[in-house]
Every structure is written in structure tokens, then in C-alpha cells.
Amino acid sequence: MSPGDEHDYRPTDRGGRTDDPYSTLGGTRQTRTRLPDSDAGHPQARRPARNSRSLVMIVGVVVLLIAAIAFANRGGGSDDDASPGAKGRGSTGSAPTAATGTKPVQGKDGTIASGFAHDEQGAQSAAANYSVALVSDGMFDQTRRKEISEAVYAPAVASTRQADLDRIYSDESFLRSIGLEPDGKAPQGLTFISRANPVGTKMEKYSEDTATVAVWYSALFGLAGEGSKNPVSESWYTTTYELRWVGGDWKITDFHQEDGPVPVGRDQAASSAEEMADAVQQFGGFTYAR
């Protein structure tokens, strides 16, 4: 649910001596100064010359140290690093997604991903994907809405949520206020768009079978096309989901939504109704996040 803020401390390919013949090990460009012979007023013994064998040993130790640091920063090792961006048990906060080569989900329920991992990363992934589904235009279609509800909500609350959603999305006054027909479809010649674009997720609380995950996202909503009285606009929200591990997957038991954080808008000119309609039809929304 912008994600290079992290500093990369891995050594570069230039570790060790650089191509500069006057550079010493580590690139400090230090030189050795030979002190004058000691005299009575300055009883300073001359340092013995360092032989080539000592220099070779030092270079070897430094090379091994660099290799060890590079291996550690590569993240291979503990089981906790097996899931991308995962943090330790009981930890909270944001965690950037990192590639692991492991398939993040094992299946899908319709167009909605399912089979999320039983860990913090899996809970965050589920919350981001459920945001996309619950804000999609499929919620305005009775059949599709039922499929979404059954896919994202825990069985214990699914029927209650379904009834609440049907009451909201079948309200003709509500549909009329956003420019849709009584059946939830867009008027002829217009294209309806409702999409959530997750920016990031944050783990608020985690235990073995429950998780509280906040999803920050932008939403596009409105009617695209000539003559639209509800042009497509952008809004920003944070929805916090209460999730429970049920039947081998993460499911929603409750949620609450709040506005923002909202970024400052740039001085970009809004696209024409025709351009927006074309973009909506040509660019499909993502069906899997994180």
C-alpha cells in the first residue's frame, strides 16, 4: 500500500586500493613521512621497516572484513528475513517491501489475492489488497459486491457487512448524488472510476492470530467523459483494518477510516475529460498490492 531512503553501507567495487597509485588502503591518500634520526634532545627510536609479509597479512584481513560486511548487508541468514520487509515478532511500524524470490500469495479468490503468509508481511499485504477491492467500482455491482464481501471479511461478520453494504450501495439518492444510474452503472457516454492506490502500510499491532494494519492510499473517484458533472478527482485516506487469521488466511473483522495525510498539490494542469476517460479505459487497475 515511493517506497531508497535506506542508506546502503555495502562496500563498492572500489573497496581496497583504488586505481590511484598514491592512494593507500581505504582511499585515505595518506603518505608515510620518514622522521630524522634521533639525537640527544629528541630520544626517538626509528620504527623498523614493515616487511612485505606483514603488508600482505593486513590486506588479507581487510579483504575478509569487507566480504563479511557485504554478506551481512545482503540479508541472507535468519528465518525472520524470509518474508520481504518483515520485522521481528511483536514489532510495529512500517517496513519496506524487499524482493525475496518467494511467491507472496498462493492463490486468489476471484480477482482478489488470497492465501497470504501467516506473518506481519502477509497481514500488511492482505490489508493493502483488501483496500483495493473495497474501493473498487465492483462495490457498485450487487453480484460483484457479494463476491468481494465474502472474500475479504471473516465469516463471523461477512453477512452483517454484506447487509450494510447493500443498504448503502443500493440507495438511489446516494447513487444519484454521485452521477450514477439506479442500478449503479454510469450514464451512457461516461466512464465511472473508483480506484484505491496504496502508498504504504503500517503495522500497528501484531500477535499470532490478530493484526491491526493501517493502509495509506490515494483514491480516484468520479465520472470521466464529456459533460460529466462529477469529474474524476483525487482524495487521500488512511484506513486501519482489524484482521484475524481464519481458515488459513487473513480476514477483516473491523475497520475505521480517516482523511489524509494529504500532500500538497503540484501546479499541474488537469487533463481534459476525454484524456481522463481514455486513461481509465487504457490503464487497468492493479489487482495485487505489496
Rank of each mutant, 00 (worst) to 15 (best):
F221N: 00
V213L: 02
K205E: 10
A269P: 06
D5M: 11
S271R: 15
Q257C: 05
A70E: 10
D183L: 02
A67Q: 09
A123G: 07
T31A: 09
A158Y: 02
R32I: 10
G247A: 01
G26L: 02
G222K: 00
G265S: 12
E147D: 15
V199G: 06
M1P: 08
A219F: 06
V215G: 04
L180G: 05
I252C: 05
H42N: 12
K202Y: 10
D141T: 06
G75F: 00
G179M: 01
P182E: 08
V135Y: 09
G248R: 03
Y169A: 04
P198F: 03
W216F: 11
P43W: 10
P155Q: 07
A270Q: 15
V135I: 08
I178G: 02
A133F: 09
S54A: 10
Q257N: 14
K202Q: 11
H118Q: 15
R167I: 02
S233V: 00
D164G: 07
Q121N: 08
V59T: 09
D119Y: 01
D137G: 08
G285C: 02
A70F: 00
A151W: 01
D164Y: 01
G260A: 12
H118S: 11
E275K: 14
G179I: 00
S271K: 15
F221V: 00
M1K: 11
L243Q: 02
G93Y: 06
T238L: 04
A277S: 14
D37I: 09
D79F: 07
K251P: 01
V59G: 08
D278T: 11
Y217P: 03
D166P: 01
R89L: 09
E204K: 14
D119P: 00
S159H: 04
T24P: 00
T111D: 13
L243N: 02
N230R: 12
L55K: 13
Q282P: 00
A127C: 05
D137N: 12
H256V: 05
A40K: 13
N51P: 04
R29W: 08
E208G: 05
P84R: 12
S173D: 12
I112C: 08
G179V: 00
V135E: 11
D171F: 03
T102E: 10
V157N: 03
D183A: 05
V132A: 14
S207P: 03
